[in-house]
Design a protein around this nucleic acid. Sequence first.
RNA 1: GGCGAGUUGGCGGAGAGGUUACGCAGCGGAUUGCAAAUCCGUGAAGAUCGGUUCGAUUCCGAUACUCGCCUCCA
Length: 464
Amino acid sequence: MATIRLYNTATRAKEDFTPIDAGNVRMYVCGPTVYDRAHLGNARPVVVFDVLYRLLRHVYGAEHVTYVRNFTDVDDKINATAQARKAAGDPRDLEALIRERTEETIGWYHADMDALGALRPTIEPRATDYIGQMITMIAGLIGSGHAYEKDGHVLFRVRSYSAYGALSGRSVDDMIAGARVEVAPFKEDPMDFVLWKPSDADLPGWDSPWGRGRPGWHIECSAMSHELLGAAFDIHGGGLDLQFPHHENEIAQSRCAHPGADFAHVWMHNEMLQVEGKKMSKSLGNFFTVRDLLEQGVPGEVIRLVFLGTHYGKPMDWTAEKAAQAEATLRKWRGLVAGIEPAASPLPGVVSALSDDLNTAGALAELHGAAGRGDFAGLLASARMMGLLAEEMGGWVAPAVDLSAHAGRLANLRAEALKQKDFSAVDAMKAALAAAGVEVRMSKAGVELLPGAGFDAAKLEALK
RNA sequence: GGCGAGUUGGCGGAGAGGUUACGCAGCGGAUUGCAAAUCCGUGAAGAUCGGUUCGAUUCCGAUACUCGCCUCCA
């Protein structure tokens, strides 16, 4: 069995991975807040942890891995959208409007992430289905002195957990010095964070011992991971921006609520995504969603390959140049494996590269090697392990168009041209085809037309 | 201000204390009416300054620069 090594943020070291129970390897990844379409940055952890999920399934068996990724469906941005729809005259009540918004967003998310070739997690819990568990956990924290109620709020007493800050390498005193924490009259200490907050009539709320209210952001992951994976589990992942405060707060809550267990063993964080060298932001005009890219004709498989080209622990720059290269690579590989049956198992070099802290770039080099030496069955099996070259993802390669009429006409023109030694008509048609995004291949064997990246059927019509 | 990450050939991007990463682009050749595609071959690197070492791009330190988090944004 391959030894998987993973970089653990908590220990700042690459460690051999040893599951608590090899019969049920458990991983929790922080999922999206479902208030709008997922942007490209949201897709990175999805792809990163999808690769890890596939690797774990390969090593421990598909039936022996449990992957939980939540949907955060209680959030002020969701509330704002629902309130806006209500203000616009929608007669339904707020709960129905919120439900509608989260349902449609989850549907989008699934569609977009499916397009990237990401497997669905084993369980995708919604925060609103675990309010009861959150209340239980909060009540327990109050009971043990780690939390307190004030003015309808319940706050976590950060000073009560001495190891607070260990994950992100900062001390509570340093953070106070930064003075970027919210000071509020209901807080004993400015570092304390909200477990429960009151809801007025315009906001969704649930009854609790502290009045009608809603949970703070961090408690949901603690409650759901405990309910679904237990007090201790193997891997907890998410974007690096979640390391602090979200994951720090999760650790504090969970360890204080379940003192006997040590919560997540391995913490993994993917670095952030950039676009053409800059952080993606609406003000820079380089903000876009996965759906935007798909609609522009960038296939999900291409996005995935671009992501896999950079180690997850490094910042990744999304560029049009990379997308073009990835597309060319996939076209080549898909051509090579057409009609080939995948090997029974992926190449050992690919598995060992992935086992080395998800060295996806190294694994891709192995794929290039297999392609170069003609091991197409190995290439296909290995690529599929990485979520590439799947049959259902290949529709983009060859748009469903019949170019045989054009091919025949070009062949005739060419045959005539060879006799007459005048190729002007052939070259003109070739240029027109190229302008329509069709790749022209002529050889002694005949004429072959392949619709390529910028294929445009409308321009082809002009040829007739 | 606090914490952290990074700096590799034209571009992207890995591993390894001493032996070719790999891909794309380039260059040379084969092939082609010309191309494309394909095949063969090939040049090119390790931010700066020190240190450890027989030997460092790879370990240690400093400097410069870039970037991220500290704002319920993955």
